[in-house]
């Protein structure tokens, strides 16, 4: 059977001030995988996600979502940015932030109504945050804020989810809540792409992995390619030795 690809990236090159951050990336993400993107700091992991989502303009290359350009398919895609990318003192509540996930389906000018509120409440319930729906977002703990961000993506009701370090600085309870939801999404046939830092948990959490360090090192099933050879190539040190020490 031929594999169906949710996301294909061709010859993608991104540079900040002429310094390449991503260099000639070819990547095909099969539909229905739960994929980790791993690599050292500055490897371009967040940049890769942001260029797929059109937040950063690449200097070369192209991206397609189910064979069409991102502009035409944006309703199929949900995004969880890094928690630190927004100002949590913004005057708004958890429910209101989650509702923002539904704005994409509304388009310009049209305002959210009952259907959007219902979707937002359901999403909050899934991440166990319903009790905090009217809480001002600065009054939430780091883990709770991350769950609100996840709920916002769930409220988008997308087919493909991109998440930028959702496990950054969260407690164990939140980490388990998040990974269970990600696994549920995969079960429902969704494609989930996660920028991930903790190499120890890769085999347990993910079934697909991409090694990235400015260039793509490898991509494929965790069982086949998550090995010392690729880790060493990506992190530039003898990985096996350094872990044993």
């Amino acid at each position: 059977m031929e594999i169906k690809y949710a996301v294909t990236v061709d010859d993608l090159t991104v540079a900040y001030n002429y310094k390449p951050v991503l260099w000639d990336i070819d990547l095909a993400i099969p539909e229905g995988v739960l994929m980790a993107i791993v690599g050292p700091n500055g490897a371009g992991k967040s940049t890769l996600i942001k260029s797929i989502l059109g937040i950063i303009n690449p200097i070369a290359g192209s991206v397609s979502i189910y064979g069409k350009s991102y502009d035409k398919q944006r309703k199929l895609v949900a995004y969880v940015p890094q928690k630190g990318s927004v100002d949590w003192d913004f005057p708004t509540t958890a429910l209101d932030v989650v509702k923002m996930g539904t704005y994409g389906s509304l388009g310009w000018v049209k305002r959210p109504g009952k259907a959007q509120k219902k979707a937002a409440l359901e999403a909050l319930e899934k991440v166990g945050m319903l009790a905090f729906k009217n809480r001002q977002i600065s009054q939430l703990s780091g883990g709770q804020q991350q769950r609100v961000f996840l709920a916002r993506a769930l409220a988008q009701n997308a087919s493909i989810y991109f998440m930028d370090e959702p496990f950054q600085g969260v407690d164990a309870t939140t980490e388990i809540t998040i990974i269970n939801i990600l696994k549920e999404l995969r079960k429902a046939g969704k494609t989930v792409v996660v920028v991930h830092h903790d190499l120890q948990t890769v085999p347990e959490y993910f079934d697909w992995v991409t090694f990235l360090n400015v260039k793509k090192i490898a991509t494929g099933p965790v069982k086949e390619i998550f090995n010392d050879d690729n880790l060493t190539k990506t992190y530039g040190i003898n990985y096996k030795v350094s872990v044993q020490q």
Partner: peptide
């Protein structure tokens, strides 16, 4: 009144606003 939602989302989270098409 017309663009309250767009103003809010792009002020709070410009990255999300871009990915949503605003």
């Amino acid at each position: 009144v017309a663009f309250f939602k767009e103003l809010k989302v792009s002020t709070f989270d410009a990255g999300l606003a871009t990915s949503l098409g605003f």
